[in-house]
């Protein structure tokens, strides 16, 4: 994956840029599938990272009672 070495916030920035490009509508249709694939890859990566963070937080935070 191309987003291998990106941090979460770098990924978000890249996603934002990609979305802007798509939303401006000036994207070559030949590139559409590549770009959408890249964007979904970034979203998946961010979600995974978020889930991992969440799981870690649960580990040391999820016992406010006790």
């Amino acid at each position: 994956m191309s987003e291998n070495n990106l941090s979460y916030s770098e990924s978000l920035k890249k996603l934002e840029a990609l979305l802007e490009q798509l939303e401006n509508g000036d994207l070559d249709i030949d590139l559409l599938s590549t770009k959408v694939k890249e964007a979904t890859g970034l979203i998946r990566f961010c979600k995974e990272k978020l889930r991992n963070t969440e799981a870690e937080l649960e580990q040391f935070l999820d016992k406010p009672e006790d």
Partner: peptide
């Protein structure tokens, strides 16, 4: 975490609607 979840969901939505519009 929730804020980021929502942001990602918005991004997903934007991505699919932008590419659909383009198509």
């Amino acid at each position: 975490i929730n804020t980021n979840d929502q942001q990602l969901a918005r991004f997903e939505h934007r991505l699919s609607s932008a590419s659909n519009r383009l198509l």
